[in-house]
């Protein structure tokens, strides 16, 4: 496609916004570290309080980095879903993909110990949680895809996604009922969502997963653009439907599944960010949208995490609650303002 406009200025703007929200995110937290000290530390200076240095390098910077990965990745998976289903209301949460990841995580955290008698979770590595959650989201995505091929009605598809959510929460309830208090607590904390508390190894693994998801998305750009015309048109333009669909599904499964595994189910970022992005980048061209949506999602996540930290207080709110509080009104506002979210 031809981009009729150049989006260089918008990209510059959004990049500056990302830098600012990143700084804001790093400079705020339960321990009050003055902003100028944070800045001087980041630019190679030394600060007198050693614990501050430790907090920033070992806690806040990895957390900010995770926020960028989580926000960007989830937003991108939302964009992929919206294009694949050609539905403005699609997103990892709405279609039940996050529920699938939850189910995978729940089965691992609560189910295995229940059935095999393992009580300790230490034997379960970081990777196994990621794999379980990714498999869960893949499976739901595949089922949704199969249903989508039979049922052309997009409304029905969304309702099926919601039903998956119900089924998942039902199974999770049953598991929770039989689960030990310790495992249950672990699952509950996971379901609150958090971008902190990740070990360096976990951050590395998450980076690799998100990188792979982004790479597959970039490789799908051409077919994603063709999908904007509808499947038949895409096919007539030489797009192999089966191959391109599979690639997008794997990308989404990796992004939504992997991120949900490490950061818990985080709602609304995937649904809302592509729409917010289109307010600035008024285009459907995926060459523009993919980087823009990723950056925008990262910004939103950094800001939500900053809020969740409740600056200068020791408490941390569940990030999932914050993104819902921010995201849901945004979606309602978009619906009311535009009547119909134009896809």
């Amino acid at each position: 496609m031809v981009s009729t406009k150049s989006y260089r200025f918008s990209f510059l703007l959004i990049f500056i916004a990302l830098m600012l929200s990143w700084l804001l995110n790093i400079s705020s937290g339960s321990v009050n570290i003055p902003f100028d000290k944070t800045l001087s530390l980041l630019f190679g200076g030394q600060i007198e309080v050693e614990s501050w240095q430790y907090i920033i390098w070992n806690f806040r910077i990895p957390k900010a980095f995770t926020s960028v990965l989580v926000g960007g990745g989830l937003a991108l998976s939302g964009l992929l879903m919206q294009t694949l289903f050609r539905n403005p209301l699609a997103g990892p949460f709405v279609l039940g993909i996050s529920s699938g990841a939850s189910l995978g995580a729940a089965l691992l955290l609560m189910g295995i110990s229940l059935f095999s008698g393992f009580t300790s979770l230490t034997i379960l590595g970081d990777a196994s949680l990621a794999i379980a959650a990714s498999i869960g989201s893949f499976l739901v995505l595949l089922v949704v895809m199969l249903v989508a091929q039979r049922i052309k009605d997009t409304m029905a598809l969304l309702i099926i996604g919601l039903m998956f959510g119900s089924i998942t929460s039902a199974i999770v309830s049953v598991l929770a009922y039989f689960s030990s208090a310790e495992n249950l607590q672990r699952f509950i904390f996971w379901s609150f969502g958090s971008v902190g508390n990740l070990s360096n190894q976990q951050v590395l693994l998450l980076s690799a997963i998100v990188f792979l998801g982004v790479l597959l998305s970039i490789l799908s750009i051409k077919s994603l653009n063709a999908y904007l015309l509808g499947e038949h048109y895409a096919q007539s333009l030489g797009v192999s439907l089966r191959k391109s669909r599979l690639m997008v599904i794997i990308a989404t499964g990796l992004l939504a599944g992997g991120i949900t595994a490490f950061a818990g189910p985080i709602a609304f970022v995937g649904l809302a960010v592509p729409h917010l992005t289109r307010q600035i980048f008024d285009t459907m061209e995926h060459r523009i949208l993919i980087p823009a949506v990723f950056l925008y999602g990262a910004i939103l996540m950094l800001l939500c995490d900053t809020l969740a930290q409740l600056p200068n207080s020791a408490s941390v709110l569940p990030i999932n609650a914050i993104t819902s509080l921010v995201g849901a009104p945004v979606v309602i506002w978009l619906l009311v303002r535009k009547r119909k979210m134009i896809f």
Binding site: M1, T4, A226, H232, G238, F343
Partner: peptide
Amino acid sequence: LTEQPASKNLTVQELIALGRQPYTNWIG
């Protein structure tokens, strides 16, 4: 086809340019 394009948020020029997909490189 009789079916409408899935996204009507495309501009006229963007939509017509999609017709060039069989000839464009991997990123379009």
